[in-house]
Design a protein around this nucleic acid. Sequence first.
DNA 1: CGGCATCCTTACAGATACTG
DNA 2: CAGTATCTGTAAGGATGCCG
Lengths: 117, 117
Amino acid sequence: MCPAEDFQEKRKKKMRAVQDSMDVLNGKWKISIISSICYYDKRRFSDILNDVIGISNRMLSKELKELEINQLVKRTVIGTQPITVQYELTEHGRTLQTIINNLTDWGITHRKKIVGE
Amino acid sequence: MCPAEDFQEKRKKKMRAVQDSMDVLNGKWKISIISSICYYDKRRFSDILNDVIGISNRMLSKELKELEINQLVKRTVIGTQPITVQYELTEHGRTLQTIINNLTDWGITHRKKIVGE
DNA sequence: CGGCATCCTTACAGATACTG
DNA sequence: CAGTATCTGTAAGGATGCCG
């Protein structure tokens, strides 16, 4: 295979990988939810609800379910009356930490860039 | 300020930053579009249209406009007949490269994780 | 407390056709 | 080629209320 073809193929592969990631993290809430959980070992439903500004419980519920299906989050029902549910990142979910950190840094830079000019 | 309050405040700040980033990169196309451009110096409209699987020209047009407003992408009209338009990342847009790379790596890992089990 | 069910409204986004 | 215009369906997502 010539170098040009090789470059094309690798590029396509990378682009597919990026799309895969974005499919998992789709919607406007996923990353925020994960970043709400990631600074703690475990985090309760209502705590996340408070952290993620603007989200409704209906959405949070739905999003958490998707994250669970994608094995990023683990759900544990704790006790009774009133019931408590803990969410924590799985080992796989914790591998998103780097991305979260980068997005955090970038967000700060971007805000300066946009409002600062 | 006590350490606990300090922790809270820093966390909230980080979460806001992540949300800022995600607001800029919202929708399911932005990151893919950027990653289509980033492997080249300049990239034409129809090239991006080809790279980003599933996107319509209507959407691509809209998304590119938003990226331009956020100063991530620069648009240049080249010649005539037929007209050609080049898109390139701005310096600021190029700072997303790290995030793209991380998302690429993570996407590959995630696919293995999900389909491999 | 942590949801789910329902209703409802928007915005997202596809298909198609058209223009400079 | 690089879009814009219009028309349309779908689904995201908010509001509210109910339940174990």
